[in-house]
Design a protein around this nucleic acid. Sequence first.
DNA 1: AAGTTTATTGACTCGTCAATCAACAATAAC
DNA 2: GTTATTGTTGATTGACGAGTCAATAAACTT
Lengths: 195, 195
Amino acid sequence: MPKLGMEPIRKDALIKATIVEIGRTGSLDVTVSQIAKRAGMSSALAHHYFGSKEEIFLAAMRHILSLYGAEVRGALAVAEGDEARVRAILRASFSPGNFRREVVGAWLNFWVLAQTSDGARRLLAIYQGRLRSNLLAPLRGLAGSRAGELAEALGAMIDGLYLREVLKKGTPDGARAARMALAYLDAELGRKNRA
Amino acid sequence: MPKLGMEPIRKDALIKATIVEIGRTGSLDVTVSQIAKRAGMSSALAHHYFGSKEEIFLAAMRHILSLYGAEVRGALAVAEGDEARVRAILRASFSPGNFRREVVGAWLNFWVLAQTSDGARRLLAIYQGRLRSNLLAPLRGLAGSRAGELAEALGAMIDGLYLREVLKKGTPDGARAARMALAYLDAELGRKNRA
DNA sequence: AAGTTTATTGACTCGTCAATCAACAATAAC
DNA sequence: GTTATTGTTGATTGACGAGTCAATAAACTT
């Protein structure tokens, strides 16, 4: 049975299974066995490829972060003008790909993980830094000296909307969340609000 | 040694110790023994008074929630006019009593707990409901039909600011957080912003 | 064909922790 | 002064889970 070149396939399956399991149970108290089982292998194999549970978690976190980063980059690439850039970031943050139950659940738990694990904290700091500078650049043109506070406030708002989504029952409504963040931006830029 | 009437004292000590330990470790993975030790008793006694670890957590959560609720009520009592009421809520949310490391850390973890525990979810839902209606009443007078979305957005912003505070290193800066939330309100109400 | 590397797992070790229990101590009640 | 009632803990139980290991097997190398 053993085919060669399994490593990336197994790792990938484990990462995805990790996100699903964390999102499903809503907690980091998932056993390596649960993850491995969902990924269709033994727990020993999971340890073989990742070495430790923490490494599995970090890999999953990296995966989510890089998906999000790619989406933002893609949206920025086609946005023309400062305001369009800010809007693109907000929309990307609540796109169907990122704003999914399991993903949002995983986010929340990674936040907790960042309290304990240096690796996780570092990853999250990188993400926050990138988000901040992505927002800051266009905001400087729009809001001048208030750009700094605005960028942070927008970041907090995004995180808060993620956080609140977790507790709701139904399917996440990314459009609604995006509208809320955009309304904030409109207000700050002195635009008229109205749906 | 055994004096009578220890129950409330012991329970109180356990609740406070729980919040400290959760805040300190940044995780719900605190053992009953750790909590009991910090509270100056054996783990058996903790079980004796609370029955289970989950009950201890819920009691700690109730404690934090009720402190926060009391602070908001107090601030509302002396606020005159709609705008002052909204501002009072925001200021109370970031008051030094609530916006402390351990407390904020505990909040984050209770959020996670709410994913798993029905009791925790219920408590959090009650808190969110109250916050929402507290905001909604004055906002109706200020923002009319947009009050609903505004209340939710402000709630998300508060949660987001809490969330972000956890990852920072130094002492939480409640004043800064409050300023950010108030700036948002100002923007939505068409006021001029400037510190 | 013999040896090496990669894939894979079941069984095992070792630690941890929630929860229980038996026992003991002090106070109150009768 | 015997009988609850309340407070208190050390020791124990029972489960569970991360990580290790020995063993097996397919595939590649020479």
